[in-house]
Design a protein around this nucleic acid. Structure first.
Length: 724
RNA sequence: GGGCAAUUAGCUCAAAGGCAGAGCGCAUCGUUCACAUCGAUGAGGCCGCAGGUUCGAGUCCUGCAUUGCCCACCA
């Protein structure tokens, strides 16, 4: 069949992908024996919340370029694919779907709800993996993982047990970020701040006036704090003052703490340990009482007396009114403040007191810091190391428990027969040598165990019940590189900058703790894709572009090339279709130039090999010499660029070489030249161009390669020897 | 409040002290034998602003402005 004039990706791509699958070369174990040295990448597993977006496409293209390049260089390459269960995020999309049917997760109950989420996961997990295939990703699909598959769940439990045995996991009552809508705690990294106009209320506390934006939390105040250096309040420090409140007169201690900013407000602040994280810390230092006036549902508790049952906003209104009535409201000023929101549902965060599980970060933070400081792990660009270190330096213990339903349930088992009073810490002999550890804290009887205990060690009778809490989704993501098993450690991680701390840091300390080895050598932070206007691409704003649409319109190669062409090392990438159009034209150029070369050599029964054709220098024309020299230069340049993660530059170089040096100049010159020698050169330059271009535009290069008359032709261009 | 990045043609981006470039778009011309998804020609620039260093600055330094992003316990 004669190749048609215009390149038609639709006719080629699926067929070529099948050829690759059949070849088995995506699987490192099925590569030729000569591929010995491993080269490994784990895909940042996309959340199973929905379909892929441009950011994923960019991320995947970079990884595929690296993997295909290294595979051709003779490495035993593994690119491990998979998806992430993404706790809150996925739970929320499924809840959203239910809401359309007028249902909540509570209507279904936990078991049924989780079944629904699994259904969702099956559907979108498959869609996502198929989208990667459409893009041309050469992942080893036989190793596909999910962060909640059976084996993974086991790894997660073992990690929990490991930390627990070390004494790094503890349960504590803390004021945590609480999302009343998701009704779960959130880590510091899971909240976002939004500027919002608000009011600053100046309230009289006896002789002292304090400023606050949240008068309703006043009901939970247990002290007033001032800066020890503040002369204005020196006379009250350490004293107890009598104040008027909406619930009648009360006594309040005045404490000194250096955290109080003298410049802010009146320089005096009220302390509400149960509803503010900073206040909690100050409260701990001074042994203050914690009074919870807001409940997990975002409503005032019984302790709020006559305001009980009101929402926070209602209570605020009423309390302000009441304070004004009894004359303790001094003034109200407009004020813009950063309100904390849930990063998944945008609900205003209510810090509340609750019992949560924490992972101590002291040692782990050091472990995360060390390999980067030592240069064993390199960030690209290097400038991202600074925020990484900053975060580790100021880190707090990690709240790892979540009160949602979708995720890894904590391997914590509770005795069902009431509570025992003594506060001893027990280790039962029965479990001492196993992986079980038993704890009997003051109020609860529970043990930590990977499996459901056959017998309750406390009452020997009840059926123990697993903790309802699940782990923070990032606790499991942190273990993702372990999925590579024998291929650990990996070589490079390609990811987005917004999860450097959320994910990258945690993979590093997990690797150091569990494997005593870094999880990857390089962390390449890919650009964030923005719209042409410089706005974030977002489905809800309708500013997103579906990469699959681009593939349908222009072909996968064109899409890949267009994306790669624009990777110039900037931290943002404003996306325009223009580059994809360029990619499409380029593919067509490649297609037609190849048709020309194939036509030229058909008559001559010429076959080429991978090595440079043996040619006598004196027989070469100026054009011959020039194209061979330029090809060498191009090869060197592309290799150097790929080593340094300069994908865009490599794409530019290849574009210019092929279009201008080869097509415009050499092919035109070749038409005036005679003989086998010219044909040899045409074929040699073309086949090398195909190799160099293959990581960028794999489908079309493979399709042409399959038509080339090459002596020792491989099953696929994927395992052809990379030019050096 | 701290930090990072960006600012060059209509749009997206190159140009690491020495004549400002590419792709896309636009205009005019050209279908004969790889390619009209092509070829040729062309229009189009206060290189964000203001200083400074230098024989020479888009590039180095200082300040400013605008935009985007990250971090942070100002109640």
């Amino acid at each position: 069949m004669k190749p048609s004039k215009a390149y038609d990706p639709k006719e080629v791509e699926d067929r070529i992908y099948q050829l690759w699958i059949k070849s088995g070369f995506f699987n490192p174990d099925k590569l030729p024996k000569t591929h010995k040295k491993p080269y490994t990448i784990v895909i940042p597993p996309p959340n199973v919340t929905g379909e892929l977006h441009m950011g994923h496409a960019l991320n995947a293209v970079i990884q595929d370029i690296l993997i295909r390049w290294k595979r051709m260089q003779g490495f035993k390459t593994l690119w491990l694919p998979g998806t992430d269960h993404a706790g809150i995020a996925t739970q929320n999309v499924v809840e959203k779907k239910l809401r359309k049917q007028g249902l909540t997760r509570f209507d279904l109950g936990r078991e049924k709800f989780i079944k629904e989420v699994w259904k969702w996961k099956e559907k979108y997990g498959d869609i996502i993996l198929n989208q990667f295939k459409k893009i041309g990703c050469s992942c080893d699909w036989s190793r596909t993982r999910f962060t909640m598959d059976k084996e993974y769940a086991e790894t997660v439990k073992q990690a929990f047990l490991h930390y627990y045995k070390k004494g790094w996991i503890y349960q504590g009552e803390r004021t945590v970020n609480w999302c009343p809508r998701c009704s779960t705690s959130l880590s510091d990294l899971e909240i976002v701040y939004k500027e919002k106009p608000a009011e600053m209320y100046y309230i009289k506390y006896g002789p002292i006036t304090i400023a606050t934006t949240r008068p309703e939390t006043k009901l939970g105040d247990t002290a007033v704090a001032v800066n020890p250096k503040d002369e204005r309040y020196k006379k009250y420090a350490g004293k107890t003052i009598t104040i008027k409140t909406v619930l009648g007169p009360a006594k309040m201690k005045v404490i000194e703490d250096k955290m109080v900013d003298m410049e802010f407000g009146t320089g005096a602040m009220k302390i509400t340990p149960a509803h503010d994280i900073l206040d909690f810390e100050i409260g701990e230092r001074h042994g203050l009482e914690r009074k919870q006036v807001i409940g997990p549902d975002g409503r005032m508790t019984k302790l709020a007396d006559k305001y009980a049952g009101m929402t926070v906003t209602e209570a605020r209104k009423q309390i302000v009114k009441d304070m004004d009535k009894i004359g303790i409201l001094e003034k109200v000023e407009p004020y813009t403040h950063n309100s904390a929101r849930c990063y998944r549902c945008d609900t205003v965060i209510e810090p509340i007191l609750s019992k949560q599980w924490f992972l101590k970060m002291n040692e782990l933070a050091k472990m995360a810091e060390k390999p980067v400081k030592q240069g064993k792990i390199k960030f690209h660009p290097k400038s991202f190391e600074k925020p990484y270190f900053d975060w580790l330096k100021n880190i707090r213990d990690w709240c790892i428990s979540r009160q949602i339903w979708w995720g890894h349930q904590l391997p914590v088992w509770h005795c069902q027969t009431g509570r025992i009073s003594n506060s001893q810490f027990l280790i039962s002999k029965q479990f001492e040598n196993s992986k079980l550890k038993i704890e009997n804290s003051s109020a609860e009887k529970f043990i930590i165990s990977a499996k459901k205990p056959k017998q309750c060690p406390f009452c020997k009778n009840c059926e123990m019940k697993q903790s309802a809490d699940v782990l923070d989704t990032w606790f499991s993501s942190a273990l993702w590189p372990f999925t590579t098993k024998d291929f650990y450690p990996t070589d490079v991680l390609i990811t987005a900058r917004d999860i450097i701390n959320l994910w990258v840091a945690r993979m590093i300390f997990s690797g150091m703790e569990f494997k005593k080895e870094i999880p990857f050598k390089h962390v390449y932070i890919n650009a964030t894709i923005l719209t042409k206007e410089g706005k974030r691409m977002s489905k809800s704003l309708g500013t997103g572009i579906d990469p699959i649409n681009l593939i349908n319109e222009f072909g996968a190669d064109a899409t890949r090339f267009g994306i790669a062409y624009q990777i110039m090392g900037n931290q943002d990438m404003k996306f325009v279709k223009d580059n994809i159009v360029m990619g499409k034209k380029f593919c067509n150029k490649l297609w037609n130039a190849s048709r020309f070369v194939l036509g030229q050599i058909k008559s001559s029964k010429l076959k080429t090999q991978n090595s440079k054709p043996q040619l006598k220098a004196q027989n070469l024309t100026a054009a011959d010499k020039r194209i061979l020299k330029t090809l060498d230069k191009t090869i060197k340049s592309v290799n150097k660029d790929l080593e340094n993660f300069k994908f865009g530059k490599a794409a530019h170089t290849l574009y210019n070489f092929f279009w201008h040096d080869f097509c415009d100049v050499y092919i035109e010159a070749s038409k005036k030249q005679e003989g086998e020698k010219t044909k040899k050169i045409l074929l040699y330059v073309l086949s090398n161009s195909l190799k160099l271009l293959h990581p960028f535009i794999p489908f079309i290069t493979e399709e042409i390669y399959q038509k080339l008359p090459i002596k020792d032709k491989k099953k696929s261009l994927m395992i052809e020897k990379w030019p050096i």
